[in-house]
């Protein structure tokens, strides 16, 4: 159960900072810093640079991701940008364009 949900009709233009899990059903533009799990659902659309612990992408993401633990691009996920993470999972059917850096910090 994620604490924070951004609904599918919601548009946030700005910066989101937090320590709890975040579920995005709507649109977020800007910057996301999260010390927890970020979940981008199917309807979700994110155009932002993200620094998170873990991210799971089912929707559309444009931007660079720096994940401390893991990045998951699910079957319906679309990702354009660079990824820096020790563990990366790209499912069959996912769309990805960008560079991957798996160097352990």
């Amino acid at each position: 159960m994620s604490n924070t949900i951004i609904g599918h009709t919601l548009v946030i233009d700005g910066e989101i900072v937090g320590d709890e899990s975040l579920t995005i059903l709507g649109t977020v533009k800007g910057k996301i810093e999260l010390n927890n799990t970020l979940l981008v659902e199917k309807e979700g659309n994110v155009e932002a640079d993200m620094i998170v612990n873990k991210i799971t992408i089912n929707g559309s993401v444009t931007g660079n991701i720096h994940a401390h633990e893991k990045v998951e691009i699910q079957e319906a996920g679309q990702m354009v940008g660079d990824i820096k993470s020790p563990r990366i999972f790209i499912a069959d059917g996912a769309v990805f364009k960008g560079q991957i850096d798996m160097d352990v910090d």
Binding site: N3, T4, I5, I6, G7, H8, T9, L10, V11, I12, D13, G14, E15, I16, V17, G18, D19, E20, L22, L25, G26, G30
Partner: peptide
């Protein structure tokens, strides 16, 4: 599903628009 919740540890700086 139609309720957006912004948790207690979340800080948003910017504009928020929506229909829910």
């Amino acid at each position: 599903n139609n309720i957006t919740v912004i948790g207690p540890s979340i800080f948003i700086k910017g504009n928020i628009e929506g229909n829910e």
